[in-house]
Simulated scan of single mutants.
Amino acid sequence: MAIVLAEYAPEGVDIFHAIKMLLIHDLVEIDAGDTFCYDVQGNESKAAREAQAALRLFGLLPADQGRELHLLWDEFETGETPTAKFAAALDRIQPLLHNQQNGGGMRTHGIRREQVMKRLAPVKTGAPELWPFVLQLIDDFVAAGYLKDTSAFTPVAGDYS
């Protein structure tokens, strides 16, 4: 995905570095047990599970390689460099594209537009040229009934998700 969308990378992004970050990030997620991004309870322990998985995985390697890969993972997780921001943007866009192709899997879980907007907010800074495309996809999802649009949604007591 990073290769295909490289032309949308902001200035200062190193595509090869982004690819490495995305791969390492995904390996840690897989080892930790991927968590559905809208699973409130599952996400409470996600950071700890992933940190533990990173230590385990990178500890299997020779020290210099383990250190290098852990630094890549840390860079992605902190999301402060232009390359990490671009990688995070792609990581957020990919599930949206999957949902577009599978007929709106988010519908099954009752996901709301507001949740998706919040989840995809890193695209605005990480890949700003792709933001209008993301907004259009979200509008298309609402029109197709894949997402609930609850703009006038008023949370009831205890519902702050």
Rank of each mutant, 00 (worst) to 15 (best):
I3S: 13
A144W: 02
V28N: 04
L120M: 15
I30D: 09
Y38L: 11
C37R: 14
G158E: 14
E75Q: 10
D91C: 08
L55H: 07
A88I: 15
I111L: 14
A6W: 07
A2T: 07
E50S: 04
L23K: 11
H17E: 14
L96I: 14
S45M: 08
I15R: 05
H98N: 10
T83H: 06
Q115T: 13
G105E: 04
H17D: 13
V116F: 03
I24M: 11
Y146A: 05
P62A: 10
D91Y: 13
F86H: 07
T154G: 00
K20H: 07
D149E: 11
H98L: 11
P62T: 01
G42V: 09
F58S: 03
A121K: 12
A143W: 01
L22A: 08
Q41Y: 06
V13G: 03
D91N: 14
Q100W: 09
F16L: 14
P122I: 06
E80H: 11
P62N: 13
E77D: 09
N102Q: 11
E68S: 12
W73M: 00
V134R: 02
A47K: 14
R67D: 12
Q101H: 10
Q41A: 13
K85I: 02
I93R: 03
L23H: 09
L27H: 07
L147C: 02
L23Y: 10
Q94W: 11
I19N: 03
R56L: 02
R107Y: 02
L137W: 06
I93G: 03
L69K: 06
A6K: 14
W131N: 01
L96C: 05
E68N: 07
R56D: 05
D91P: 00
L71Q: 13
R107T: 05
Q52D: 10
T108F: 09
Y146W: 13
L90K: 06
E11W: 00
